[in-house]
């Protein structure tokens, strides 16, 4: 554990609390892509299958994994059951099969072993790197977003960005080389946030509304 990773994980935690806060205070999931949230459940469940082996890394690790799985499923419940009428599927039109298929193929080509833990792990790494796309696509379509929604996406972007210095730090302080799968997917994932991040920094953080140029 190092500073960047801890800060990244805390940022990830913060993003979930921001999302829950947004849904509960506005009593609405307007502006949130249900498809992205489904993808996150798939990501967490496929990545944390090692929970079933009971080979613990640390209490921190296990508690966080359980929290990410639990909270992501809870968010689906909020969107599909509790605040269902506020969820508008007609603007959430990204075809996620175009993400799931290629990620499945990639995980069969690039993995650390053909086992029931490694292939889903690899799949989850690839899928996470593109899981935000339906959300960004929705933002693109509506052309604007509630400020709190942009804080949620920004916190997710910060989490991914912070994992990069974490890997650089680990490369120099540990003796295990580079995890090419996580690093390449992580860089791709972070790059997807660049456009959004630019508008977030230049508009939202200056007190303006998040609006895309027409």
């Amino acid at each position: 554990m190092n500073f960047f990773r801890l800060l990244g994980d805390l940022s990830h935690l913060a993003s979930i609390f921001i999302l829950l806060h947004k849904i509960q205070t506005t009593r609405s999931c307007r502006g949130i892509s249900f498809k992205t949230q489904v993808l996150y459940v798939v990501v967490f469940v496929t990545r944390y299958l090692d929970l079933l082996t009971f080979q613990f890394h640390s209490i921190y690790n296990t508690v966080m994994k359980l929290f990410f799985i639990g909270s992501s499923i809870y968010i689906l419940y909020l969107m599909r059951v509790r605040f269902r009428p506020t969820n508008d599927p007609s603007i959430d039109t990204f075809r996620i099969e175009y993400l799931l298929g290629p990620c499945a193929v990639l995980s069969l080509i690039f993995n650390y072993g053909y086992t029931w833990l490694e292939i889903p792990w690899s799949f989850s790494i690839f899928l996470e790197s593109v899981a935000i796309l339906p959300q960004l696509f929705m933002l693109q379509r509506t052309g604007e977003a509630e400020t709190i929604t942009t804080h949620y996406i920004a916190a997710l972007g910060a989490y991914r960005a912070l994992y990069i210095p974490n890997w650089i730090f680990r490369y120099f302080t540990e003796d295990n080389g580079v995890d090419a799968i996580a690093v390449v997917a992580g860089i791709v994932q972070t790059a997807l946030y660049v456009d959004f991040g630019w508008i977030y920094f230049t508009k939202v953080l200056q007190g303006q509304k998040f609006e895309l140029p027409a």
């Binding site: 990773r5 994980d9 990830h12 090692d50 890394h57 690790n61 966080m64 994994k65 990410f68 650390y112 792990w121 994992y163 974490n166 680990r170 540990e174 003796d175 295990n176 080389g177 580079v178 995890d179 799968i181 996580a182």
Partner: peptide
């Protein structure tokens, strides 16, 4: 090639 233990990350 070293196989890094990245599985300790979230």
């Amino acid at each position: 090639i070293a196989t890094p233990d990245v599985h300790d990350e979230l």
